[in-house]
Design a protein around this nucleic acid. Structure first.
Lengths: 214, 214
DNA sequence: ATCTGACCATTTTGTTTAAAAAGTCAAAAG
DNA sequence: CTTTTGACTTTTTAAACAAAATGGTCAGAT
């Protein structure tokens, strides 16, 4: 099209590429998506893609970074205005669950064929974890300042909690077929995570009541 | 040797085979251990192994079942005489950690190359989990009866706790090289598990204090 | 009843070759 | 000057095949 669309922001070329790459990644995963296919999808030459991104990895890294930013944007939005540390935690946990669903659909966790993707994902995941722990640390610290949570250090507690959530997710996943995940199974996982979160929070409350530091 | 050793139980052939298989499994894992090698280790022909075990899988399954039985024997021993539910839980967690170390050395969790072992391990692991949950359920129920724990059902709580422990273990593992595990890293994992256990237990105590069912 | 060497069947591993995909670049288009 | 392209090179994957290794069997020896 040689005219600017009306009533909608003209997407930048980079965004067009990212969107196409995101679709392919979600449908087929990293290895089953070729640069040529992405180029064809948006009526571009493959060489043009390399004008915007130095290599395939950078392109898909950008796609995943987009996803990640969107997640933290939503988290901020959800936590905005909340004063109660417990509510903030449960909200974050819920949102995390939604992100997880998206990443599932996005093929991020298609463990089967992500041999090549691993180094890419590792770095990205590390970043995700760090940011999440940073948010959790603030919330836990606030809960301590308000006198409802008790623990030694907020940072360590945040790490424990984050790892625990991640662990339950993995264990739940392992118990079913990696290819599919029914709504019921998703629900069971959600309940498990919520129940454990509840107990964990109550554990911190117990500590506060009994002046337990560690 | 054609004489019976003095002062020591003459090991049965089956035990000799199992011991050799266990050593190899610990050093090299399932796939990197051949029946021929085991046979050579104990100066036997490969065919003789097949006289005692119908196939490779059965042999290694027997090895792992041995390990598992040993674990539960130690658990029973440790819990014997304990009345306090909290102490029982922490004891079980400690013992579990030791089992995990052994299984690590034994190559059980060498995720890298256990493609073939999976069906075998899956069944065995399911059994381990069920027994463990059964023990945990009893302990939790006792804690509830004693009025120190609060929850809806002991069984569900046991499952949550078991999955949580397993999850933390996996997450800790993932963060380091699969091939090696230093004593420091082992220690960190142990601390993480103990801390989380503490918080979980306190969460149940909190529930008891506040008459929370769910 | 226990064990063996020789044997078979299946899997795994290497090797070669062809196709596909990643990545480059000089030059064209606007 | 920025963006885009077709033609090109290099690297990676896939297929096909042969060779080696391994699991498993069996008649017969001890």
């Amino acid at each position: 099209m040689n005219y600017t669309e009306v009533g909608t922001e003209p997407e930048s070329k980079i965004d067009i590429i990212l969107t196409a790459a995101q679709k392919r990644l979600g449908l087929f995963g990293y290895e089953k998506t070729t640069m040529q296919e992405i180029a064809d999808d948006i009526a571009m030459s493959k060489a043009a893609l390399y004008y915007y991104f130095p290599d395939k990895e950078s392109l898909f890294k950008a796609v995943l970074e987009n996803e990640q930013n969107e997640y933290f944007r939503l988290i901020d939005q959800r936590l905005e205005g909340l004063k109660d540390a417990e509510k903030m935690i449960t909200n974050l946990v819920d949102q995390r669950q939604i992100l997880f669903q998206r990443f599932l659909n996005l093929g991020k966790f298609r463990v089967a064929d992500n041999h090549k993707m691993k180094p890419l994902l590792k770095e990205l995941y590390k970043n995700l974890r760090e940011k999440e722990i940073s948010i959790l640390t603030k919330i836990f610290q606030q809960g301590k300042d308000d006198g409802i949570f008790g623990f030694d250090t907020a940072g360590e507690t945040a790490i424990l909690f984050s790892d625990m959530l991640q662990g339950i997710r993995i264990v739940s996943m392992k118990r079913l077929h990696l290819t599919e995940m029914s709504t019921e199974e998703t629900h069971n996982m959600k309940v498990a995570i919520q129940s454990t979160t509840k107990i964990f929070i109550n554990g911190l409350k117990y500590n506060a009541l009994h002046n337990i530091k560690k």
